[in-house]
């Protein structure tokens, strides 16, 4: 059979493809529907949080920080409850990372605050002596791309049914609504409103910040990347 295949390239290629495609079908397909279901209490990202997630990705924070707490005592002691599949239901892409040059950030919102991040991103060595993390000062200058975050919200709502503007069940039996700008009257997107909503979120974050340039920027309606990133960090719980 092998001799015959080696003389018939088309069937050879077919045989190779069947052999390699097999594993993917068995391993990946069965899990799809189940794993994408959100856990109760897991909410979609708000406009500013999602923009902050983009800042996180843009700077490849995931190259050094994981977002996956494994079910070991040493990990739950250090980072909090181990990760559950449903907690990632709104993560596109996933950001588990593959290397912990720095600590895990899956629940960093539980134990770090806005001012901690502000100081740390400006001068990590001052906050954590001995750290090898570099400073990220350009984030205090560069503007956040709110528009793209909003475009992504529209996309995931439209294609994947992410429940923006809908009640999401919480653990204590109540429900919560994560808002996305939408012109209900004409049933179309409202970019202007989305920017306003992001700015309102930014104002809350900036209250706990001390960098005068950042404060001034938000005052005039500009959102530096650091503000969005902190909004995202604080949402990780």
């Amino acid at each position: 059979m092998f001799h015959w295949l080696e003389k018939n390239p088309f069937f050879f290629a077919l045989a190779v493809f069947a052999t390699i495609a097999f594993a993917g079908l068995v391993e990946i397909v069965p899990n799809f529907a189940q794993a994408s279901r959100p856990l109760i209490g897991t909410t979609p990202y708000s406009t500013l949080e999602l923009a902050g997630r983009h800042v996180y990705i843009k700077n490849s924070c995931n190259a050094c920080h994981s977002q996956l707490i494994r079910p070991f005592k040493s990990e739950t002691d250090r980072y909090g409850d181990y990760s559950l599949s449903g907690e990632y239901a709104y993560d596109r892409p996933f950001l588990w990372g593959s290397k912990r040059t720095g600590p895990d950030l899956m629940r960093v919102g539980n134990y770090r605050t806005t001012d901690w991040h502000e100081n740390h991103m400006w001068d990590p060595e001052k906050v954590v002596p001995g750290t090898i993390m570099p400073a990220y000062r350009w984030m205090f200058v560069n503007n956040t791309d709110i528009d793209t975050a909003y475009a992504e919200m529209i996309t995931v709502k439209k294609f994947f049914g992410v429940p923006y503007n809908q009640p999401v069940p919480m653990k204590d039996g109540t429900s919560k609504i994560v808002k996305m700008a939408w012109n209900e009257a004409e049933n179309k997107s409202d970019l202007h409103e989305a920017r306003k909503m992001a700015l309102a979120e930014a104002r809350i974050i900036v209250k706990d910040m001390k960098n005068q340039d950042v404060i001034d920027a938000v005052e005039v309606g500009r959102i530096p990347e650091i503000v969005a990133l902190i909004a995202y960090m604080n949402s990780l719980k």
């Binding site: 993917g24 990946i28 799809f32 990632y88 793209t148 992504e152 529209i154 995931v156």
Partner: peptide, 30 residues
């Protein structure tokens, strides 16, 4: 591509993965 899905908002080159969370991880590491 989010720019086309949202009818012209944001960066034209940006896109959002077809897979979420655990599924995305599974496909990515495959």
């Amino acid at each position: 591509p989010t720019y086309y899905a949202s009818e012209g908002i944001g960066a034209w080159y940006h896109s959002v993965s077809m897979y979420a969370g655990t599924n995305d991880a599974l496909v990515q590491w495959w």
